[in-house]
Design a protein around this nucleic acid. Structure first.
Lengths: 213, 213
DNA sequence: TAGATTGTTAATCGATTAACAATC
DNA sequence: TAGATTGTTAATCGATTAACAATC
């Protein structure tokens, strides 16, 4: 199969299409048109067609795409269809939220273990996931060939944990600590930066309030 | 003062500049060049200058910008310098994390009260913020002219809470529930969509793993 | 057939980068 | 002065949208 690529923007929209397609009634029509998707999501229809072209085998004029095939293609493209293991470090507030999330499986990610330094949490089991001492982190990652690390520790410890993860073979890090982590070029960092969207919200609100004086 | 505007991208970068500027040693030089900022943040220097032009009174050739003035200008532009009140609805896991966050004040936002339906939490105080029954939500928002609502309730209740907030005069909503909320055009929604960045991480990891076969 | 829909090619748009003159 | 730096104007780049031919 030719290797398909997609722009960052396209990858951001694909999950939207997926959730729309999944929301369609299962007893409804088996086909769906790019025009319909575009209208439902308030996007340009050509844009939708271009995005879908980077994922699917293509639709048919007058008919559109076969809904189920499209769902499958998007899931496959995004990698939802083969499960990847992840470790979570920091079983505090945010860590607990993540450990309780049920949606990760649908996205093809499985948290196999949690880690913390706090002795009172170590040994416990949260939503079926065992919490280990951070001492064990490196060893487990290497043994299980874990490629995804989730960092939900306080900011001051984040870099240290990050370095351990990288040394243990982790290739992608999902970072919830408000720190700019330093990693080698071959490791990907995704920062979950709440303040970024808050800042935009506040900026726009501010502008609106001033306009209305 | 002429009304300054900035693109969405610029607004996203301004907080980066701010955090870099704040990180500079206070006993160091009082000036900073766009070139230095650009290098530190791995950006193009002309880009930085353009961004700063939309915020500040301008720098001087050979000297650069006065660090403190620049910090002030960015804070002012982003609206950090006048505090806005917010209410938080849903004092569960994520809600607790947000209530404990200390950084909001620096961004000009203050959570004045929390709300929940769970009787066992109502009446309690989390990090100095009182938790009220949701019944009181509408009344408090109107009385205190609150313009920001933070939704951290489970997905099924999100739309209902959202409607109450909108009816009570809230103009901007920061949504942590994984739901597409419906609001009038004049209300701004900012979704904190964890899955979006997770999807990109997983997609890239997938591509990398396949490349290396 | 007529018309809805796809997919492609060209035009537009906005953001970034390059080139360069102005300045201290 | 020489050179670092700013800010502006033009070129480039990538993404979106428009126009349109192909198809069922």
């Amino acid at each position: 199969m030719a290797y398909k690529t997609a722009s960052r923007q396209t990858i951001q929209r694909l999950p939207l299409y997926l959730s729309y397609l999944r929301s369609l009634p299962s007893d409804g029509p088996t086909n769906v048109s790019a025009t319909a998707i575009a209208e439902a999501l308030d996007l340009n229809d050509v844009l939708v067609r271009k995005d879908l072209a980077s994922v699917s085998a293509g639709g048919r004029p007058r008919i559109g795409y076969i809904t189920q095939d499209l769902i499958f293609s998007i899931e496959q493209f995004l990698g939802y269809r083969d499960t990847k293991s992840a470790v979570l470090v920091g079983a505090g507030n945010i860590g607990q939220v993540l450990l309780h999330y049920k949606g990760f499986a649908k996205h093809g990610m499985n948290i196999v273990a949690a880690f913390d330094t706090d002795e009172s949490v170590v040994g416990e089991s949260i939503n079926g996931k065992q919490v280990f001492s951070v001492d064990k982190l490196s060893n487990l990652c290497e043994r299980m060939k874990v490629r995804i690390g989730i960092i939900s520790v306080p900011a001051p410890s984040a870099q240290e944990i990050c370095s351990i993860l990288v040394k243990s073979g982790v290739m992608a890090i999902w970072n919830f600590a408000p720190v700019q982590l330093k990693v080698p070029d071959n490791v990907m960092i995704y920062n979950e930066d709440w303040f970024s969207s808050l800042d935009q919200l506040l900026k726009h609100l501010n502008d609106r309030l001033h306009d209305n004086i």
